[in-house]
Amino acid sequence: MIPAHDVPAGAHWSLALRAGRVLRLTALDDGAVCSTLLFAHRDPVDRLNVPDTLKAQMSARITPPMVLMSDRGAALASVTGSSLDWHDCLTGHSLDRHLDRHAAVSGPSSYATDRNDWRRSARAGLLSELRKHGRGPADLHACVNLFAKVAIGPDGGLTFVPDHAHAGDWVTLRAEQDLLLVLSTAPHPLDPAWAPGAVRAEVEAGAPYGPDDPSVTFRPESARALANAAAVLA
């Protein structure tokens, strides 16, 4: 178990999370975003599959009690609770090119000029963190932007919702197998402002759950993914 860890605004971090434990992420600032990649910790390639997660649960957003599913059809994590009913998973993380608009407003940013407040994209941070785990660009995948919402119009248009998360908003992820989570707190790529927020991470012991668990009963597809996770190591 780790003590609470505060991931600063615009930073990156990773965490290996043991099966059964619960990761509680809390926004410490208004507008915080946590672009999150999920991997099966003991598997060289298995990772979050956003399309499979969405189509199995007939949803275009991440919300409790959905199950986050992998390429192998196994549950990685269950979203056991959240103060928000919408976490974006359609629009990816930011890249260096998204920093250009901030440079146009505030001038270029570097360590030399801004020390540890220099502006870095989520991609730069996620790659930095992935490389510490012997991973690289091929391991980047469609992420979940926890705390972010991008609204879907009736014609399929996408609109960033700027006032979605506030300080104190939270989400809990229960690890359904041993996980590697890699995350960035850089702003959402559609956010016109550079106003990143910090996120607190706390690991809770978690508790055994049974057939009446909301993620199990949510949909038959959710239950089957959870059963597949239980069978990862037969």
């Binding site: 599959n49 956003v50 399309p51 499979d52 969405l54 189509k55 199995a56 275009a60 599913m69 390429d71 192998r72 059809g73 196994a74 359609l90 890249l95 090119r97 399929g156 597809e221 089957r224 993914a225 597949n228």
Partner: peptide
């Protein structure tokens, strides 16, 4: 963010890119 291809003609009208591909593993789930 590099352009790979551009859709230059389309007599269907619109196409999905969020449904992913079917897999034996996701078929089990679904």
């Amino acid at each position: 963010l590099e352009p790979l291809v551009t859709v230059t003609a389309d007599t269907c009208g619109r196409h999905d890119t969020l449904g992913g591909a079917c897999a034996q593993e996701s078929n089990v789930v679904r």
